[in-house]
Simulated scan of single mutants.
Amino acid sequence: MKFIELRSDTFTLPTPGMKEAMFSAPLGDDVFGEDPTVLALENKVAAMFQKEAAIFCTSGTMSNQMAITATVSQGQEVICDELSHIYLYEGGGIMANAGASVKLLKGDLGRLSKAQIEAAISPDDIHACESTMVSLENTVNKGGGSVYSSESLEEISSFCRSRNLHLHLDGARIFNAMAVTGQKPSQFGAWFDSISVCLSKGLGAPIGSVLVGDAPFIKKVKRIRKRMGGGWRQAGMLAAAGIYALDYQVERLQEDHRRAKDIAQICSQLSWVESILPVVTNIVIIKIQEGLHSTVKVAELAQKGIKCAPFGAEYIRFVTHLGFDDSDLQLFEEYIQS
């Protein structure tokens, strides 16, 4: 039996072309700022988003936490949605790394509005936690891959600047969002003060994330990265994978989105499925019928050859990626209906 891997787009493997680029990459010591391939990747992503500088690190969690730690101090807070990855899935890093608090809002499938943010800002009062950063996620993982409109981001960005709030983007799947909206990296660079860009999900690199921002911010972040134990040495082989992914594996994200919609259509016909969140990108989140439990259902599906992930007691998540093609989609339909 061939297993169908749909637990996450982090299960992607380097393509032959990516492996060739990795093995042929010129190398140096990045802690000394002398790895030419790491520098090329950082310069490429900074230019793409029209930011002054960038820094390469191991993961989106690290890049998010570095951005928070560089911006928010003890007695201050981050405003974000209750579904945010920075709150739910980063090991309590906001508190552990920055010593900061978090103010959780309930948005629309993880998306916040300017009005919500404005209402959430703490008053200028010694009893209150000082609001310092607003963090958005795009696409929103727990929102089923939901995306922000340009109008919403423009409104939020303008407001945050008027109130001197640092606006950060957890852009783990930012290229999936752009594939849907037609937005450009330069627009996000204008809207946000810092952006975390993951290379190891839909783009297919084996590891790595890039954080972009202005030069003083990135200089501060580099010290934090070192303190976290994130200083690279000959990291150019990994950076080369990121460069290859950005050059050759962005446009194909549309294929993942198409297959995700097909999965949703197939699942909508199943008796044990109660509902499905709107499918916009490469994430499908289904709600199972009352009386069932997601971990039990996930185990049943694994026995049939489908690997997926429980997403709370009532939900199951499927994520499409470059390792899941049309032949796998056909097998998925056969397996899940058996």
Rank of each mutant, 00 (worst) to 15 (best):
F3S: 12
F3D: 12
T12F: 02
L13G: 01
P14M: 03
P16Q: 07
K19I: 08
G28S: 07
G28P: 08
V31K: 13
E34K: 10
E34D: 10
D35N: 09
D35M: 05
L41M: 06
N43R: 09
K44N: 10
K44C: 07
A46F: 05
A47E: 14
F49K: 15
Q50K: 14
Q50C: 12
E52K: 13
E52S: 11
A54I: 05
A54T: 03
I55R: 09
I55H: 15
M62C: 05
M62A: 12
I68L: 09
T69D: 09
T69K: 13
A70E: 11
V72E: 04
S73T: 09
D81S: 14
E82H: 04
L83N: 15
H85P: 00
Y87L: 08
Y89T: 05
E90V: 07
N97S: 12
G99P: 07
G99K: 05
S101A: 13
V102H: 08
K106V: 15
D108S: 12
D108W: 09
L109I: 06
R111I: 05
Q116M: 08
H127W: 00
S131Y: 00
E137T: 02
N141K: 02
K142E: 04
K142S: 02
G143M: 03
G145S: 02
Y148H: 00
E151V: 03
I156L: 06
S158H: 11
S158W: 03
F159P: 05
C160Y: 02
R161N: 08
F175A: 07
N176T: 02
Q183Y: 03
P185W: 02
S186N: 00
W191C: 01
S196G: 07
S196C: 08
S196M: 05
S200F: 08
S200V: 04
S209T: 10
L211M: 15
A215I: 15
A215K: 15
F217M: 13
F217N: 01
V221T: 15
K222D: 15
I224C: 06
R225P: 05
K226R: 13
M237C: 09
L238P: 03
L246T: 03
D247T: 04
D247C: 01
Y248F: 13
E251R: 09
R252Y: 04
R252I: 07
L253F: 10
D256Y: 08
R258F: 04
A260V: 10
A260P: 11
D262N: 07
I263W: 08
I266T: 14
C267F: 06
V273A: 08
E274Y: 12
L277F: 10
V280S: 02
T281R: 00
I285K: 10
K287T: 15
K287R: 15
I288Q: 14
Q289V: 14
E290V: 02
G291P: 03
L292D: 13
K297A: 06
K297N: 09
K297R: 13
V298C: 10
A299I: 06
L301S: 09
Q303F: 01
Q303I: 03
I306T: 02
I306Y: 10
F311S: 06
L322N: 13
G323N: 14
F324T: 14
D325H: 11
Q330H: 08
Q330P: 00
L331A: 11
E334Q: 13
Y335P: 11
Y335R: 15
Q337R: 14
Q337Y: 10
